[in-house]
C-alpha cells in the first residue's frame, strides 16, 4: 500500500504541488490532468527521483526515504521520456536494467523473454533499437517496467506513441496485472483509463481535485451535461455563452454537447456525463489559457 501524506513540492518560489493526500491499494489508478498540472512531479516523488518539500510518502506504513532500495525494488517505472541506448538490442538493454534492478542472474534471461513476449517484441529482441519506431520503443519501456515483476507499477504517459491496437493490448495487460499490483498510470488521454481504472486521481491548481471511481466522478456533473442541435450560425454565438464539450455535424445542423448549470431549456436533452466531460469541465479555464 502506497500512502501520500500532505505532499508538497516547491521549486524555489514556484509551487508545483501542495497538500496532496492519497492512498493507493492494489488496482489501477488513473492520474488524470492536463500537461503541466504536476503529474510528472508527483510521479517523480513516488519513484524517488525527487524529494517532497513537505509531507511523507509511505509504503506499507514505512517512509520510502527510509526504505530506500527495499522500496525501489518493489517498483516498476516507465518515465514520460523513456531513455535507452540506441546501439543496444532490447535484450541487451533489459539485461542492463535487470542488473540495475538487482535481479537474480539465473532468472533474468527467462524473464526478459517473458516480458518481451508480453509486449510483442520477441521477434526483434536481438535487433538494435536504433531502427525501432516510437511505438516499439515505448513497448520496450513497458517491458522494462514489468521486468522485475514489481508490486507497484508507475507509468508516466505509457500509451504515447502506441497505435490503437497496441493501446488496446496494453489496457488488457494492465487489467490483468492490476489484480495483485498497484498500478498508477498517468495520462492526459481520458480513453486510456476510463474503462480500466478502478479510481481516477485528478489534480488541479497544484492540489488534489478528485480521487474516486470513474462513475462517482461522473456523477458530479449529473444534470449539467446536455446535447442540442442548432444551425452553424447559431453555434458560433452559442459557444460564446456555453462550455461546449463536443460537436458534430448532422443533417446540415450542429449537434452540440455542452456543460451548463442553468435551468434546462426545452430543446436541450440531458445526457449522462462521461469522464471526458469531467476532464473538459474541470480544466476548462486552463484550456482557454
Amino acid at each position: 500500500m502506497l500512502k501520500l501524506e500532505n505532499i508538497g513540492k516547491n521549486y524555489g518560489d514556484f509551487t508545483a504541488l501542495t497538500n496532496i493526500h492519497l492512498q493507493f491499494d492494489n488496482g489501477i489508478y488513473g492520474l488524470l490532468a492536463p500537461n503541466g498540472a504536476g503529474k510528472t512531479t508527483l510521479i517523480k516523488m513516488l519513484v524517488t527521483l525527487a524529494a517532497p518539500t513537505t509531507g511523507t510518502i509511505f509504503y506499507n506504513d514505512q517512509p520510502i526515504a527510509t526504505l530506500g532500495e527495499k522500496y525501489r525494488e518493489q517498483i516498476g517505472y516507465l518515465p514520460q521520456h523513456f531513455g535507452y541506448y540506441k546501439h543496444h538490442s532490447p535484450k541487451q538493454y533489459l539485461r542492463y536494467l535487470a542488473a540495475l534492478k538487482g535481479m537474480d542472474k539465473r532468472v533474468v534471461e527467462e524473464r526478459i523473454d517473458e516480458v518481451l513476449e508480453c509486449v510483442a517484441l520477441a521477434d526483434v529482441k536481438n535487433k538494435k533499437m536504433r531502427k525501432f519506431s516510437g511505438g516499439m520503443i515505448q513497448r520496450v519501456g513497458i517491458a522494462q517496467a514489468l521486468l522485475s515483476d514489481p508490486k507497484v507499477l508507475i507509468l508516466d504517459e505509457p500509451t504515447a506513441g502506441l497505435d490503437p491496437k497496441e493501446r488496446a493490448r496494453f489496457r488488457h495487460l494492465l487489467t490483468e496485472l492490476g489484480r495483485d499490483k498497484t498500478i498508477l498510470l498517468s495520462t492526459h488521454v481520458v480513453s486510456d483509463i476510463e474503462s480500466i481504472a478502478n479510481e481516477i486521481v485528478m489534480l488541479k491548481n497544484k492540489e488534489l481535485l478528485y480521487k474516486a471511481n470513474p462513475a462517482t466522478i461522473c456523477h458530479t456533473l449529473d444534470g449539467k451535461i446536455f446535447e442540442t442541435a442548432m444551425s452553424f450560425h447559431a453555434f458560433n454565438d452559442f459557444r460564446k455563452d456555453y462550455l461546449t464539450l463536443a460537436e458534430k455535424q448532422e443533417t446540415g445542423q450542429m449537434l452540440v454537447r455542452f456543460f451548463t448549470e442553468q435551468t434546462p431549456k426545452s430543446d436541450w436533452k440531458q445526457v449522462s456525463p462521461q469522464l471526458e466531460d469531467v476532464f473538459l469541465v474541470a480544466y476548462a479555464d486552463e484550456q482557454k489559457g
Binding site: 527521483l49 530506500g68 532500495e69 525494488e73 523513456f82 531513455g83 535507452y84
Partner: peptide, 20 residues
C-alpha cells in the same frame, strides 16, 4: 552519456538507486 540517452531516471529509480 547516460544523461543524453535519458536513462538516469531509470537508473536512479531502480533498486540500486543513486548508488549507481
Amino acid at each position: 552519456r547516460d544523461v543524453n540517452a535519458g536513462v538516469v531516471p531509470l537508473q536512479y529509480s531502480s533498486k540500486k538507486g543513486r548508488s549507481v
